[in-house]
Amino acid sequence: MENANRFELRLTGSGGQGLILGSIILAEAAMMEGKTVTQSQVYGAEARGGTTKAELIVSDRHIAYPKVTDPDLLAAMTSDGLQQYGGGISRKTEVIIDSSVMCAPDFLNEENCHGLLALPIRSTAVSRLQSELGLNIVLLGVIVGLTGLVGVDTLRKAVGMHIRKQYLDMNMKALDLGMELVAAQAETGIRI
């Protein structure tokens, strides 16, 4: 449905990466800013390692159909995730892929998406945080840096609601790293 104040987001990757949690944190941040949201997910029977999809709709008004049908943003953290849930994108969809685990796929081009942003998300988490665990929060930093979907301070508050105290510093750093990735990319102007 056409609505300028509606934002549809789809995250896909591998079970265990925390993408569902990431979408919940973003949902809470949007709620704090007075928006309404629906957050949903698809996953397999595996405890971890299966392909997952997390979806979030943020809107100023009531959301009837709760699933993403016309994504404004698709972020793929694994190549399997992109293969399985990369369908349904359109000229308005901004696509983010993790360049540290995959190459830009052939089927994405100027004709079928708004833009493709390849950022080294996993390798940044591993090299700068010494942990893969911050990957989802780095991605949230990327998303907010790119779209301004929610305020950074609000997002920090929402992260704090879901992350244990002893890991909070690491996750705040992860947010910064994500936003830095976007800023650095904007500076160089290099897009794939």
């Binding site: 919940i24 949902a27 709620m31 309404t36 949201v37 629906t38 957050q39 949903s40 997910q41 959301i63 709760p66 699933k67």
Partner: peptide, 9 residues
Amino acid sequence: ETVSHLREP
């Protein structure tokens, strides 16, 4: 399954 796992305000 969808309503059970859906998150909304």
